[in-house]
Amino acid sequence: MALDPTDRRILSVLQRKGRISNADLSEEVNLSASACHRRVQRLEEDGYISSYVALLDRRKMGLPTLVFVEITLSGQADDLLDAFEKAVSRIPDVLECHLMAGTADYILKIVAEDTEDFARIHRQHLSRLPGVAQMQSSFALRTVFKTTAIPV
């Protein structure tokens, strides 16, 4: 299914206001409530909308420290990559894990209470990941820009 301008407006609004009522959404995109509802359902069914979530403030949740960890593995065999990915997905402090092209094999985005908490995460989890040859951690000093909305 190709997205038309109305679909794109719906997606744009929903990315910013996920809890908006169908009545308010239909008003913002200039559609009847029933037509808007049908379009949202179709966008969900076709996979354009994968889920609805509440985005929490990590600072208010006691996790103000943001760390990016570059990981280089000892090899590139499928079984090693699979074992690493399975193990890293079980670490609750890891928000994102990306397989990379470049100097590192993976980049992890991790939240922690502070540097001591990150040391615990490193000691209890990261140092035990299978196949890790090298790790480099970078602490974010300040978030300059952040969004979850992709261009539509």
Score class of each variant (00 low, 15 high):
residue 1 M to D: 10
residue 3 L to Y: 03
residue 4 D to I: 06
residue 6 T to A: 09
residue 10 I to T: 01
residue 11 L to K: 06
residue 12 S to E: 11
residue 15 Q to D: 10
residue 16 R to N: 10
residue 17 K to V: 07
residue 18 G to Y: 02
residue 18 G to W: 01
residue 19 R to W: 03
residue 20 I to E: 00
residue 21 S to H: 05
residue 22 N to H: 00
residue 22 N to K: 03
residue 23 A to W: 04
residue 23 A to H: 10
residue 26 S to I: 01
residue 26 S to D: 05
residue 31 L to A: 04
residue 38 R to S: 09
residue 38 R to P: 01
residue 41 Q to N: 11
residue 43 L to F: 00
residue 44 E to I: 12
residue 44 E to L: 11
residue 46 D to Q: 14
residue 47 G to H: 03
residue 48 Y to C: 06
residue 49 I to Q: 11
residue 54 A to F: 14
residue 56 L to G: 00
residue 56 L to S: 13
residue 57 D to H: 11
residue 60 K to G: 15
residue 60 K to A: 15
residue 64 P to D: 00
residue 69 V to F: 00
residue 70 E to L: 13
residue 70 E to D: 13
residue 72 T to S: 15
residue 77 A to K: 15
residue 79 D to F: 08
residue 81 L to H: 09
residue 87 A to S: 12
residue 88 V to R: 01
residue 88 V to S: 05
residue 89 S to T: 06
residue 90 R to G: 07
residue 92 P to A: 06
residue 94 V to W: 02
residue 94 V to E: 03
residue 94 V to H: 01
residue 95 L to M: 13
residue 96 E to G: 02
residue 104 A to Y: 08
residue 108 L to W: 02
residue 109 K to W: 05
residue 110 I to R: 02
residue 111 V to T: 15
residue 112 A to D: 02
residue 115 T to N: 08
residue 116 E to Y: 07
residue 117 D to Y: 06
residue 117 D to A: 06
residue 119 A to H: 02
residue 119 A to G: 00
residue 122 H to F: 10
residue 123 R to C: 09
residue 124 Q to Y: 11
residue 124 Q to T: 13
residue 124 Q to R: 14
residue 126 L to M: 00
residue 127 S to D: 09
residue 131 G to H: 02
residue 131 G to D: 03
residue 131 G to P: 10
residue 133 A to S: 13
residue 134 Q to T: 12
residue 134 Q to C: 12
residue 137 S to Y: 00
residue 139 F to I: 12
residue 144 V to I: 15
residue 145 F to T: 13
residue 145 F to Q: 13
residue 148 T to M: 14
residue 149 A to S: 14
residue 150 I to H: 07
residue 152 V to F: 14
